[in-house]
Amino acid sequence: MNINISVFLFVIFLGRIQAHGEKRILLNDPDLIHSQIQALESKYQDILTKYADLSTKYTDVSTKYADLSMKYTDVSTKNTALATKCADLSAHNADLAVKYHHLSETSNAGGVFIRWGRKECPSNQTELVYSGFAGGSWYNDEGGAAEYVCLPRDPNLATKFSGNHAKMYGSEYNSLGAPFGLHDGDDVPCAVCRSSRETSVLMIPGKNSCYTGWAMQYHGYLVAGYYAYKGAGQYICLDEHPETLTAGGHNEDGKLIYPVQAVCGSLPCPPYENGKYLTCAVCAK
């Protein structure tokens, strides 16, 4: 069946409907088609308007997104720079903490000892407080002080006293045979030293080394006054390489220094040996 016959039959069908008094709308009614086209055009324009509005809003959102993205990138860059600065600051603080700890240890340290027989301190992180002259009481004075002292080179003296008094003499190496490699009567120097690390200082008689955990300051020979003299004596540690004071070679006595010899009996032998001389070590921790 071709199209023309179909259209013809449809028109006859519509005619019959009209003939029966029923109101029908013809598909080819120009007014109906025109009104529908206008409605479609109106909706189309409305869609275009909404599309344009949405497009504007989308453009605005895109602009805001791009702006936010730039701000985020800027913030991220600043955060990265800040993180780098924080890392640098942290490293700097760590370095300052190490330096502060070192300075704190240095300032809190300060074990002081006297190096007998030398003018300078040992080169093991110690500082020289002052260099001076070893001295003490006359070797044969019954009322003399026992200890040796390290007298400074720049004394402040007074004259206001009178009457009875104690006396201060210089100290000499005074032994036949010059056991320290020096001449009899040579004067004894000394140095007051301060450790820049350790706070405790110990003189160990009979040892030329330090025990575990202790740092060596210097070592040498144990010395004291001669046992037969009336003046009291004191044990001190003389450096193993003793020096002398300039122009101090005259034998004028004073506070004398002799090497110390072990005597068996109440002193256990072994480990000590009768007649052997004692060493010593000054150690710090």
Rank of each mutant, 00 (worst) to 15 (best):
M1E: 12
N4V: 10
V7T: 01
L9N: 11
F10S: 10
F10W: 10
R16Q: 07
H20M: 14
H20Q: 11
H20P: 00
R24Q: 12
R24P: 12
R24H: 03
I25H: 09
D31F: 02
L32Y: 08
Q36C: 08
L40V: 13
S42I: 04
S42A: 13
Y44R: 14
L48E: 12
L48K: 14
T49V: 07
T49L: 13
Y51L: 09
D53R: 09
S55V: 04
T59A: 15
K64C: 02
M70F: 01
K71R: 15
K71I: 03
T73N: 11
S76C: 05
K78L: 04
N79W: 04
T80E: 03
T84Y: 12
A87E: 02
S90V: 07
A91W: 02
Y100V: 08
T106D: 05
G111H: 02
G111P: 02
G111T: 09
V112W: 03
I114D: 03
W116R: 06
K119F: 03
S123A: 15
S123R: 09
Q125S: 15
Q125P: 00
T126N: 07
Y130H: 11
S131D: 04
G132K: 07
G144E: 02
L151E: 01
P155K: 08
N156M: 12
L157C: 05
L157V: 14
A158N: 14
T159Y: 13
N164V: 10
A166V: 06
K167Q: 05
M168Y: 00
S171Y: 00
Y173D: 01
P179Y: 14
P179Q: 10
F180R: 06
G181R: 04
L182F: 04
L182G: 05
G185R: 03
D187I: 01
C190G: 05
A191V: 05
A191N: 01
C193S: 06
S195W: 05
V201T: 07
M203I: 11
P205S: 09
N208A: 08
C210E: 00
C210M: 03
C210F: 02
T212A: 11
A215L: 06
A215Q: 12
M216K: 15
Q217S: 08
V223M: 03
A224T: 11
G225P: 02
G225N: 10
Y226E: 04
A232N: 15
I236W: 00
C237V: 09
E240M: 11
T244K: 14
T244V: 13
G249T: 13
Y258C: 11
P259N: 06
V260E: 07
Q261R: 13
A262K: 08
C264E: 03
C264R: 14
C264P: 00
S266Q: 08
C269A: 03
G275T: 02
G275R: 06
T279M: 08
C280E: 04
C283F: 07
C283V: 08
